[in-house]
Design a binder for these strands. Structure first.
Lengths: 109, 109
DNA sequence: GAGTGACTTGAAGATTTTTGCAAGTCCGAA
DNA sequence: TTCGGACTTGCAAAAATCTTCAAGTCACTC
């Protein structure tokens, strides 16, 4: 194995660690979409979106194909949706912990 | 909401996107551990490990407490294990895709 | 085959992360 | 109360990312 497994995992997660890339993946959960659609929803420059799509493509998380004049993107595996869901759960857990702390702090004062 | 949800998600994933931090989380899946143990397993300078632990702590993914002379770390929620598992699955999917591509390439030549 | 919309690429500057060292803090033992 | 082990913190240099602009490709339509 040339790259240690934990490093490959880290790269995977780091790939998801960007707001635009997260939004793209969320949009792609509903099925393939042309860049034009993504661009209409995400509020970022076309070239920037393209760069972020390239990052996802290089990581193998999405795939792209041309359909006439449009370029379509799709999740390369539906497992991605699970990952996003798991992320959401943790965020929920962490934020409620934070909130209870906040509530406690307020009580002490 | 001060921080858009997708940005909070991105930060979450970014937090996991570092080899040392991934290893720490994997080790903590089996229960709380003192820094000393982590240090023995991870091959990184103490100060570096400490910095990475601080990143995880700030994100609310782990918690720490002192036990005599030792500082212990633990996952703040067991959900983290799910996330790591989901990551593993995707990595598997992506890598087998890559491998089949490689095989195809080899065949063409 | 010129024009236009849809994207991608390359490169450079700005920003963020990572790393390692030096300098602490905290605790238990001697 | 001093020593040593266990960690953390503050920085600054080095490395990786992000963003944007200018230029380029590809596919339709006229």
């Amino acid at each position: 194995m040339s790259v240690p497994l934990y490093q490959a995992k880290a790269e995977m997660f780091r790939t998801l660690g960007h707001p635009v890339r997260i939004r793209v993946l969320e949009l792609l959960q509903d099925g393939p979409r042309p860049v034009r659609d993504l661009l209409a929803e995400i509020d970022v420059e076309a070239s920037n979106l393209s760069q972020q799509l390239a990052v996802l493509r290089r990581a193998g998380i999405v795939t792209s194909f041309r359909d006439g004049a449009l370029v379509m993107y799709a999740l390369s595996t539906p497992d991605v949706a699970d990952l996003l869901a798991a992320g959401r759960r943790i965020l929920g857990a962490v934020l409620t912990d934070r909130d209870s702390l906040l509530v406690e702090l307020r009580r002490q004062k």
